[in-house]
């Protein structure tokens, strides 16, 4: 099916444009079923050695607060491709860790919950190292490829881990390679041997040679809605936020200045945000709150993972506190 799909879209290109797009310098050994000589092997090595440094410079770790994934920068402005189960949602704040350990703030854009594709935008302005996508459609079974990723989380001394592999299964929404992946690699890049991006790491099977990636074509086909921060599809790789499932975790009573906190629940969003008993909440997201019901109405309209901007009075001083709602 996948083969058919690629083939028919190639035909469509021929029909409309009248020529076959040149495969940009395809790696010659992909034409052979297997390398035949030691020279062939050295050609694989030589090509790989030339491609790794640039690919590695753009391969980032994504710190999600409760775990790590990987990603790859695909534009000078810091657009990052990753997996939907890494970004986990739309409009979330994450931290991007560059190979040298520099951290950048980023926001998650759109995602495809069914195929495990997502985009993230670095919000710190700057010029970022990036890789190019293989847009030729000339990606085939048996191609020599390599994976990069921050396996098990970021480790500056080790750097991104490389794995050489072949494309061993090809389907519409999945590539399988025989280069092993592990937790933390998710969202990291799969490259052809010339260093053009062909996929994003997604998941593995119980056996070592079963490692799955989202084809870059899935991203290309859904680029616009993803850039517009659309949440596409229903699971299993990301769950749509459910309104009203967020919780702050405080007990309050109405006082003249607003809502006074009488209790902060253990391990709640409120505790994490360091709200204290005696704090008086004056405004939430810019709206004045005088009663418990008013606070609840605001929270009910949000979901777990979303943030509340609180303006409080503590010891007579005004303070601003941001609390991320926990799941009820």
């Amino acid at each position: 099916m996948k083969g058919a799909f690629i083939y028919s879209s190639a035909l469509w290109v021929i029909a409309t444009l009248g020529f076959v797009p040149m495969a940009a310098h395809a790696f010659p050994l992909n034409e052979k079923k297997a390398p035949e000589t030691q020279e062939d092997l050295m050609l694989i090595q030589q090509t790989l050695l030339a491609s790794i440094p640039k690919a590695k410079a753009a391969t980032v770790s994504i710190d999600l607060g409760n775990g790590f994934g990987s990603g790859v920068i695909v534009s000078k402005e810091g657009l990052v491709m990753t997996a939907a189960h890494v970004s986990g949602g739309v409009g979330k704040k994450v931290t991007i860790i560059m190979p040298d350990g520099t951290k950048h703030k980023a926001n998650t854009l759109g995602l495809m919950a069914e195929t495990d594709a997502a985009l993230v935008q670095i919000t710190d302005t700057g010029e970022y190292p990036f890789v190019e996508l293989n847009r030729t459609g000339n990606i085939n079974l048996g191609d020599w490829v390599f994976s990069l990723g921050h396996s098990g989380g970021f480790n500056k001394e080790r750097g991104a881990v490389a794995r050489l592999a072949r494309l061993v299964r090809v389907a519409n929404t999945t590539y399988q390679t025989d280069g092993t992946l592990i937790g933390g690699d998710s969202g990291g890049p799969l490259f052809d041997l010339d260093g053009k991006l062909i996929g994003i790491h997604s998941r593995v099977g119980p056996q070592l040679p079963v490692n799955m990636h989202v084809p870059v074509q899935v991203f290309i086909d859904n680029w616009e809605p993803m850039m517009k921060s659309e949440f596409m599809g229903e699971g299993p790789f990301a769950q749509k936020p459910i309104k009203g499932n967020g919780m702050l975790g405080v007990a309050t009573k109405s006082v003249e200045a607003g809502l006074e906190i009488t209790k902060v629940g253990k391990k709640t969003a409120a505790e994490k945000a360091e709200l204290k008993v005696g704090d008086v909440i004056r405004k939430v997201d810019g709206k004045e709150v005088k009663t418990r019901e008013e606070l609840q109405t605001i929270i009910k309209d949000k979901s777990a993972g979303e943030e509340l901007e609180l303006e409080i009075l503590r010891d007579g001083k005004e303070r601003k506190i941001t609390a991320e709602l926990a799941e009820r």
Binding site: M1, K2, G3, K33, A34, L64, N66, G67, F68, G69, A83, H85, V86, G88, D116, L141, G142, G152, G153, L164, A165, R166, L167, V168, R169, V170, A171, N172, T173, T174, Q176, D178, G179, L181, I182, G183, G184, D185, S186, G187, H201, S202, R203, V204, G205, P206, P209, M212, P236, F237
Partner: peptide, 28 residues
């Protein structure tokens, strides 16, 4: 069946693949 590769969250999903490279030609 599938293990999602993010350190911290577990999940599972199954997708069917169509074309497969013979074992003979794989890395091993």
């Amino acid at each position: 069946k599938w293990i999602i590769l993010f350190t911290g969250i577990a999940g599972s999903h199954l997708l069917f693949a169509q074309q497969s490279l013979e074992t003979l030609y794989r890395l091993t």
